[in-house]
Each structure stands twice: as structure tokens, then as C-alpha cells.
Nucleic acid binder design. Structure first.
Lengths: 236, 236
DNA sequence: TGCACAAAAATCGTATGCAATTTATTTTGC
DNA sequence: GCAAAATAAATTGCATACGATTTTTGTGCA
């Protein structure tokens, strides 16, 4: 667990320290620097971030609510290891919510927003071209950021929070079940969705979004894997 | 705050004590036994439930995540006082999610489920007929329970949790902005939705649900009220 | 009386301590 | 040598303690 060398960003103002720790851990989980199943002991987390167990515990509780961490009574917190069924539920949820978000965003998007989207998608394209060791990580993260940006433009704080959770869990799922290369078409789909937004075509944006989610899910291999399932069964 | 005489239900197994407290407080908030804006001090909550501030704090943190409680740094937790805009966002979210839930429930509903729904709706009708001091409370609660039951039948744990939050917040909103009598038609709409489920007609169920949500929202008076808004402005 | 300011009380944020439980290690019996 | 029991270490759940911040109360002064 080499989180220690992370920049302890006080980026989000002077908010709760627990929240900052949550953000750091979430990034680490979504980026797969913390493997699913990894034990996150209160003491260790507290040490790494130089806080007491109290606030480390609060951070872990937050992650537990978001479904990124699973906590067991008297045993502690572990990085979530979503099952294929859970993965399906994540995408089923997104299919309900995101087309609607696309429609709402279509009505509210400004030229400033469009500029931000363009910059974002440029980055995304660049990450795709790269072929480093963590190119895939960056790609997954950038892809999620597109959806989060869209949610913020839609202007519904509640849905935005739901999407934050769903995107985080999706990243975990993609990291676990994703087939390597195919998801590159996602970038093109993002571009087309932005185009629909620009032309204020909510119907098209919504439809493209729905297909986009379908494609992401279709790119997963959600057959039950022998390895972990067996191990889990034997542990029990 | 007369929560003390509540049955300290160990109903949900031997889970965290914080969770039990959260459930109690949530009921109290949704039932309007705790008025919006009420201060929920950690010490007092701890006293009432006979736990330390530590676990009281955890319960309040959970409620804060659900949007039922607003916490301010160094000032504490207060029962949420949703703005009209927030209310609109709650219903916008429900419009995206619940028609989809109705469709999913349509495919999965069993005869047992239908029996449970029937019993539930009988209760609902009874509450509507009553004219006691807390008849309205019971009515709001029963109405919410219908939607929660539907979400549980739909079989998506993530959406179910989202709906728990949305229904709780809706109850708060209805209590705040609801016009008195009109919502009685809600019961009939529930009956019709159940009928559509029984006849495995997802399209109809979905459409009825959408209109039902529209009707609930239309029954609210979301014009900005002078009183609280002014007070809030002056407090600032 | 009304207002500004200071002291006191209440409340929050957080660290730490201790009992209970779980996990790891050693010892015992065969 | 190996499984099972016993012991030791680590970890969690929770209560309490203490400094920091906010809220309330009290007091002097216009």
C-alpha cells in the first residue's frame, strides 16, 4: 500500500480530513492501486494519513456507503470485490439514469461547458494513444470523468452524487472484468455524444448514451470466474 | 424530542447500534416528529439512545449521506430543510429511476409478491379513510412503503438503496410542501400500477408510474415561501 | 432600554484507552 | 510430523478525555 507518497491534496478546501482521506482512497481503489479484497485496517490508514483511528474510520465508513469498501463487523474494511451480478446492477442503474442526464445536460449546456468537454476529450484521446504501464488506468479514469462532467452539467445534485458512486463502481468493475483493448471505441462515442449536446439534440444524445453504456457493459466478461469464487467458497 | 419512548427495535438483527439509531432517527424525521431545522446534537442523541457520542456521531453521519440531515462543521447536525429546488431534483430523479423499476418489477414479480402488495395497499386504504391527528403521517409513510416494496421486487440492490433515499427525502418534501387533501388519488394509482404488474404489462406499469410521480409533484406547492427563506437570509 | 464586549457553558473534532473479538503463533497430544 | 488446543498479538467497537470553536449568558456603558 504505497499511498504515503501521494500528494496529500488539500485541494477541496479545508473540508473534513476524513473526506480528503476518502477521496485519496477512492482514487486508489478506482485506479486499482489497491486490489479488491485488500484489507484496509483503521490503524494502518490512520498511520499513512497521519490521523487517529477515529477519522480513518470515518473515511472508511464513507467508502462503505459508496459501495467501494465492504465492512464486516469486528473484522474491518476491505476493498470491494464486486460480483458479476453486482456489475450488472451497476450498469442497469446507469442505463436508467444516464440517458436522462444526457437530456437534462442538453438543455443546460453552455459554450463554456462545451469547451471544457473538448479539452477533457482531448486528454482522453491522448491517454488512449499512450501505451505505458498505467495507460489503461488513465483511460478508465478519463472515461469516467466524461460521465461525471456530464452529470455536473445536468444540474441535479442528487443524480450527480448517484453518478459519482456508479462511475466509481464501474471503474472497479471494468478493472476487474474488462477485456483489454476493445473499449477504445468509447472515446468516439463520447465525441458523438458531445456533438449531439452541441446541436441540442436531446433525443440523439440520450440514445447515444444508452448505446454507449450497452457497449461498455458488452465489453466486460461477466462469466463467473473459477479462481476467486472457488477461493471464496473454500474460505467459507 | 420524545424519541426515548420509541421501541428500540433490534429488528434488523444484531447489526451496528449506529444503524439502529439511524433507522429510528430516519423514521422520526420522515414522520415529522422531528421538524426540519431541528438541532440533533451528538450528546443529546447519545443520551437518548444510551450510547456514547462516537456512535451517535456515526448515525448522524449516515443520515447526512442520505440527505436527511445537514451537517455544518463545528456546528453540528440539523434535520434537513429541503428547498423547492431540492424537492424538484428529488422528483426529477424519481422520474428517471422509478419507471425503470416498474418495468423490472413487472418481469420479476411473483404471486407471493402480489399478495404482499395487496395487503400493503389494503392498509394504505385504511389509513386514508382515517381522520386522526397522525392519519396524514401514516398515509405518507404507507405511500412511500409501496414504492420501496416495488424497488425490492425489482431486484437491484443499488437502485433499491437509491430509492430508499429518494422516498425518505420525498416524505420530508411532501410533509413540507404538500397540499392537504388531494394526494388521496395516489392510492388509486397504486392500485392501477399493481394491476399492470399483475397483468405483466411493463409498458403500462412504467407509464402509470411516471404519471403517478408527476401527480405527486403536482400536488406540491413549491413556490418559495417567505417565512423560512427570509429567516435563512437574515441568519446569514 | 439597547448595544458592545467579555466570560462561561455548551458543543464539536479528534486522540487515546480499554474490553471484546478476531487472527496469528506456539505448544501439546498423538 | 501433524492436527488440535492454548496462548499471544493484533484489530475492532466503543467510551471517554481534552483542546478548539461556537453559542449563550452576563455585565458595563452609553
Amino acid at each position: 500500500m504505497n499511498i504515503a507518497d501521494q500528494i496529500y491534496s488539500a485541494d477541496s478546501a479545508n473540508q473534513d480530513r476524513a473526506q480528503a482521506i476518502r477521496d485519496n482512497l477512492r482514487d486508489a481503489i478506482v485506479d486499482r492501486r489497491l486490489a479488491p479484497g485488500t484489507k484496509l485496517s483503521e490503524g494502518e490508514v490512520g498511520m499513512l494519513f497521519d490521523v487517529s483511528r477515529t477519522v480513518a474510520r470515518a473515511a472508511l465508513q464513507m467508502l462503505s456507503f459508496e459501495g467501494l469498501v465492504r465492512t464486516e463487523r469486528n473484522r474491518g474494511a476491505f476493498v470491494a470485490n464486486p460480483s458479476p451480478e453486482e456489475a450488472r446492477q451497476v450498469f442497469a442503474s446507469r442505463r436508467l439514469i444516464e440517458p436522462g442526464i444526457a437530456i437534462a445536460a442538453c438543455e443546460r449546456i453552455t459554450t463554456t461547458d462545451i469547451a471544457i468537454f473538448s479539452a477533457q476529450l482531448d486528454d482522453e484521446g491522448r491517454f488512449m494513444a499512450e501505451r505505458g504501464p498505467n495507460a489503461r488506468r488513465s483511460e478508465i479514469k478519463a472515461s469516467g470523468d466524461f460521465h461525471l462532467l456530464l452529470a455536473s452539467v445536468a444540474g441535479n445534485a442528487i443524480l450527480q452524487r448517484f453518478m459519482e458512486e456508479l462511475v466509481a463502481r464501474s471503474s472497479l468493475v471494468i478493472a476487474l472484468y474488462g477485456r483489454s483493448g476493445v473499449s477504445s471505441c468509447g472515446h468516439n462515442e463520447h465525441l458523438r455524444i458531445l456533438d449531439a449536446l452541441e446541436h441540442k439534440n436531446p433525443g440523439l444524445a440520450s440514445e447515444l448514451m444508452l448505446h454507449h453504456i450497452d457497449h461498455i457493459e458488452a465489453d466486460l466478461d461477466l462469466r463467473v470466474r473459477a479462481g476467486p469464487a472457488l477461493k471464496e467458497a473454500l474460505n467459507f
